[in-house]
Design a protein around this nucleic acid. Structure first.
Lengths: 92, 92
DNA sequence: CAAAGTACTTTGTTTTGCAAAGTATAATAT
DNA sequence: ATATTATACTTTGCAAAACAAAGTACTTTG
């Protein structure tokens, strides 16, 4: 079974981005993924709930800034997911 | 965007099985995938609706037998999906 | 200081994914 | 002969997911 948290269009790319960039602001994720604020927000919540990512709320001057980081659990899960995909591809 | 019809746990495996075996009976799919009848039935309907597969209802003696075959659209889509996965893996 | 913008979150609706229940026929036991 | 169980599915109902629209809380700008 592919990890259902990762085997989804937006989340697989989201986590992939976080693996490559280690941390990214909400806005950058939103623009790169081409999703609405609400949609991104709920995907982030889902990933945070399972400790795949960590969300840090800071301030950039006076404006709120949400920083999203990959967490150890998420990194491991993603690696396993990529391995699973690789195995799936091999047999196809 | 990964093809949402294929980027799903059960359906990706289902179509993969059909690519390898060309045609399979309902029962074999059900057992191999480890899903309930209802669940399989609805996934098949979804794939059939988009012409990814073809469903043939025949009789084995006096009992109904549902045969599932991969269709050209499905084969192409699956190949493209595998390519997309490959590309995704490459960059991760 | 009103209007518009920024950075999100919450709410509401549609779509999925699934199991339980239903349908129809066949085989088997009584 | 007929009730019971089994086979092969499909339909229904419901909980969870995915998404956009609306809401919240500020802040900057005209």
């Amino acid at each position: 079974m592919f990890d259902p948290l990762l085997h989804q269009n937006i989340r697989s790319k989201l986590v992939s981005l976080l693996i490559s960039n280690d941390e990214l602001p909400f806005k950058a994720l939103k623009e790169t993924l081409g999703v609405t604020d609400g949609n991104l927000s709920s995907h982030l919540s889902k990933l945070e709930k399972e400790k795949y990512i960590a969300i840090e709320k800071t301030f950039e001057g006076k404006r709120p800034k949400t920083m999203v980081k990959i967490a150890p659990v998420g990194r491991k899960a993603f690696e396993a997911y990529i391995e699973a995909l690789r195995a799936f591809i091999e047999e196809n």
